[in-house]
Design a protein around this nucleic acid. Sequence first.
DNA 1: TTGTAAGCGTTATCAA
DNA 2: TTGATAACGCTTACAA
Lengths: 353, 353
Amino acid sequence: MTKRATIKDIAHELNISTSTVSRALADQWDVNPDTRRAVLEVAKRLNYRSNPISLRLRSRQTWTVGVVVPEFINSYFAEILIGMQRVFFPKGYNILVAQSNETASVEENNLKLFENNMVDGILISVAQDSDNTAIYDRLLKNDMPLVFFNRVPEDIRASKVIVDDRKWAFLATEHLISQGCRRIAHFAGNGNLSVSVERRHGYISALKKHGLPVDESLIIEAGLQMESGYIGAMKLLQMDPLPDGLFAVTDPVAIGAMKFLKNHGIRIPEDIAVAGFTESPYATIVEPPLTTVRQPTFDIGVTAATLLLDQITSRHDPDKSDSWSGDNVRTVTLEAHLEVRESSLCKNFRGGS
Amino acid sequence: MTKRATIKDIAHELNISTSTVSRALADQWDVNPDTRRAVLEVAKRLNYRSNPISLRLRSRQTWTVGVVVPEFINSYFAEILIGMQRVFFPKGYNILVAQSNETASVEENNLKLFENNMVDGILISVAQDSDNTAIYDRLLKNDMPLVFFNRVPEDIRASKVIVDDRKWAFLATEHLISQGCRRIAHFAGNGNLSVSVERRHGYISALKKHGLPVDESLIIEAGLQMESGYIGAMKLLQMDPLPDGLFAVTDPVAIGAMKFLKNHGIRIPEDIAVAGFTESPYATIVEPPLTTVRQPTFDIGVTAATLLLDQITSRHDPDKSDSWSGDNVRTVTLEAHLEVRESSLCKNFRGGS
DNA sequence: TTGTAAGCGTTATCAA
DNA sequence: TTGATAACGCTTACAA
């Protein structure tokens, strides 16, 4: 067998018209039960499956959504993608994934790629150095269903799925304070990024609440990946006295810092207690295990996908002709969890030892 | 703007036929330069981009390939995927990714999904407990371009991209021997999987070559992930005397074992030297850093993608009508590298300390 | 209940 | 050099 059966083949075999076959297959009301039976039987025998491409051409939908992530090496976004797949696959949607590599121009290209492919909607977590606001605006203006997740732009009126970065950064910092830390450094991410800004805010609020001075020299702005942690830790080491706590914007940054500090004889948590953000599999593997904020990655994916699906379907819904009604614009904030581990447990608070 | 421009719009605006527009856009030989210029100009003004769906319908290609991976949380397959993207995206192909979760039935569903979507080709790394040989056979018989990578079935005549698992397992084991290990345990993966079988062979060959006894009780068959390492390590601990070396089928297994052993006061590498397989970011993060075989993940992706692309294009090539000519069936073996780190360096061989 | 025909956006064939 | 027409596979008015 080389060619896949079409409705024509079925029609031909039964000497009926393709429309009848189509109706029978679609299980419509107005087709003779006998005809339907015959059609179904031939269809089965010929192993007929409808051609998705022709369906898409007709329906003027591609049944494809695009997802832009900064990267997917670090499992965080990979887990989110799995959540998205769980929503889209059963509905017959395909997912196209592109990585921005934290770069605005690549992100822009990805978005263009999706536009050219006529995806039915886009999910995006924005790149670190991105200011593609104008592009997001254009997409929205052109009625492209669009949902941001995790890394969201401040000033765009679109659906977003986030965790309360500020709150959880606050709690993580407060936890360090509760462990006796008084001079807590912060490795902040890139300044423009929502998560960086919010987490920095949370850190500062916690210090203030507990009457600790906010020392700008303790805030080191680097990036989000492990190398940034190394670099930050180098600067940390030169400080005198050494800070007694560190809250890092992400786990990789925290882990990079730990690595460097340990190599230079600094003990964790005895000399400096460390907390990160965003649970990664690494967090339990490093030594000591890393205190961190665990995010519901899978749920983030599911939620973002569901929001997008709502937008896509309501767009084809006759009631919803007014694209600027904006009823679909929602921001969903998901819960997270502070996972306390040894890296932040100061010795006088420790259990057995 | 709500609707995207079509060639009809351009044709209408210029009072010419759609065929002329099509030709002008396709940059064909037989169109008046003036006409072409006019068409191009209007196309630009209208921001015309061809409709990929209609192109696919006509060309009877979906310009989409499917990739089945066991998982993509562990960055190994994520890196391979990036390599594949690098090949396919510039050629205008989209990639659909599905995870089998190491399960044969899920893998089967993924494959069916791809078939129904009429992908132009499939790349697959088979699931741990998979015996979907019959399905692979059917796909091949139906002329579906198909390339296996990393985890390949033994008895299928299809293109494959691998590393020489046996050789590198041999070298890793030999390295442990060179470090003075004499009783080396092996955590083997699942019995059916090519990588497991090959790596076990390599391990055994190394022992034999160096005159060490092959003790079946030292070969513990578990899985490929971290939990398997835990479980294996439990069994290890009960052995008396404790083995002095461990070669694990994958890094996660090695890392799981290290974690357990360290928790139970076993020193690495002093008490037991450890080597893994397949470089993962974890390997440098654990303590001590893990000796492992580094695979060229990106290249695996690129190579597999290129092989598949060859098959796809040669299929549409008139010279190549005979599908069973099999000239396209190739097995590419890529080089790897033994990354020696502290986890396997026995104390008498160590440098500074 | 079924068939005819038009259309989704393109391109290829053939005539003009 | 250009235009009509058919075709890719399917659905859906509309007509019968």
